[in-house]
C-alpha cells in the first residue's frame, strides 16, 4: 500500500484532478452566466466540441497553444452566436435548439476531423508549465497545484472575477434581472435581448475555451466526441452552485478528483472498473441533495424567451 500513498502518486492524482476540473469549471461558469440571464443553455456541449476542435486545429497548425485557446474560444462564440440569434433574438425553444446544436456539432466536428486527419490522431507537444516560486516547493501540493499551465491560474482567477461582476457591477445586476424579471429590466431602459446575448456569447467563449483546454492540455489531441458529456456536467454544476461561482469551483474539483482517480487507479493496478469510480461524484451529489435538498433557487424566467408586452 505504500506505493498508493507515495508522494509521487498523490501529486500525480491531484495534478490530474486539476487538469480534469478546468474544462468543467469553465463550462460551469459559462453556463452559470447564461442561466443567470434566463437562458437555459443546453447547447453548451456543442460549444465545447467546437472549441475543442477549432482549438486543436489552431494549436496544431500554428504551433502556439495560446492561438489554439483563442480559436477555441472563437469556435464556442460562433456556436453561441447561432444560439443567441435563434433563442434570444427570435425566441425559439431553448431546449430544441440547444440539443440540435449539440447533435450538429457532435457530427460536424467528427466529420471535419475525418476529412482533415482521416484516421490519424496527431498529438500536440507537451505543454509548458508556469512554476510559481516558493509555493511550488511545497511537497505534494506544490507539484500538483503550482506547476500548471498559466491558463489554469487564469481560470481560477476568473471564478473570483465572476463573483465580483455578479455582486458589484451594473452588468451583474442586469444579468440577474434578465433572468428573474426581464420585464423590469426592459422598463428600466436596458435591452433584455442585448443583456442575454452578452451572457450567451460569454458562455460560448468560456465553453469553447474549456473545450480547447480539454483537447490541447488535457488530452493533447482531438478525438470525435472528446467532451463526452462535460458540457452536461457543466449544466449540473451551474445548477448546483445556485449562482455562486465559488461553488462551481468546488464542484468542478470534486468531479475532477473522481475523474483523476479513475486513471490513477488503473495506473496503480487496482482492478475496479472505471464505471464504478465514475459513479462516485454523482452518488455524492445525489446523497447531498437527498440529505440537504432545498428548493433550488433558479432564475424565475429561466428558459422563457422574452417578448415585450406579452404577459
Amino acid at each position: 500500500m505504500t506505493g498508493l500513498f507515495s508522494e509521487v502518486f498523490l501529486s500525480a492524482l491531484l495534478f490530474g484532478a486539476v487538469t480534469a476540473a478546468i474544462p468543467l469549471l469553465l463550462a460551469g461558469l459559462g453556463e452559470q452566466m447564461s442561466e443567470k440571464a434566463g437562458v437555459l443553455n443546453i447547447g453548451i456541449e456543442g460549444m465545447m466540441l467546437a472549441g475543442a476542435y477549432l482549438g486543436f486545429v489552431g494549436a496544431f497548425y500554428s504551433g502556439s497553444l495560446w492561438l489554439g485557446f483563442l480559436t477555441g474560444a472563437g469556435g464556442g462564440i460562433a456556436v453561441a452566436l447561432v444560439m443567441a440569434l435563434l433563442c434570444v433574438r427570435i425566441g425559439l425553444n431553448q431546449i430544441v435548439i440547444g440539443i440540435a446544436l449539440t447533435l450538429g456539432l457532435e457530427g460536424l466536428t467528427a466529420l471535419l476531423h475525418h476529412f482533415q486527419f482521416s484516421r490519424s490522431y496527431p498529438r500536440l507537444p507537451a505543454v509548458d508549465v508556469t512554476v510559481i516560486p516558493l509555493l511550488s516547493g511545497i511537497p505534494v501540493i506544490g507539484l500538483a497545484l503550482f506547476r500548471q499551465h498559466l491558463i489554469v491560474y487564469l481560470a481560477v482567477a476568473l471564478v473570483f472575477a465572476m463573483g465580483y461582476i455578479y455582486r458589484r457591477t451594473q452588468l451583474g445586476l442586469n444579468l440577474q434581472a434578465a433572468g428573474d424579471k426581464p420585464a423590469a429590466l426592459d422598463v428600466a431602459g436596458i435591452d433584455v435581448a442585448r443583456t442575454r446575448t452578452i451572457a450567451v456569447l460569454t458562455t460560448g467563449a468560456l465553453a469553447g475555451l474549456g473545450g480547447a483546454f480539454l483537447a490541447n492540455v488535457g488530452a493533447g489531441l482531438f478525438i470525435p466526441f472528446i467532451t463526452n458529456g462535460a458540457g452536461f456536467l457543466g449544466i449540473v454544476l451551474a445548477m448546483l452552485a445556485r449562482g455562486r461561482p465559488v461553488w462551481v469551483l468546488f464542484g468542478a474539483l470534486l468531479f475532477g478528483v473522481c475523474l483523476s482517480l479513475t486513471t490513477a487507479m488503473q495506473v496503480a493496478g487496482i482492478n475496479i472498473p472505471t464505471d464504478v469510480i465514475q459513479m462516485l461524484p454523482f452518488l455524492a451529489v445525489m446523497i447531498m441533495l437527498v440529505l440537504f435538498g432545498r428548493r433550488a433557487s433558479l432564475p424565475a424566467a429561466l428558459g422563457i424567451p422574452y417578448e415585450r408586452g406579452v404577459r
Binding site: L240, F282, L289
Partner: peptide, 23 residues
C-alpha cells in the same frame, strides 16, 4: 417534496444509470 429541480437530478441519474448499466 423538496422542490429540487428535476433537470439536475435526472441528468445526474442518467450519468449514474449509464455507468451502472456498464457495471
Amino acid at each position: 417534496y423538496q422542490g429540487v429541480n428535476e433537470i439536475i437530478t435526472t441528468l445526474m441519474m442518467t450519468f449514474l444509470g449509464t455507468s451502472l448499466a456498464n457495471v
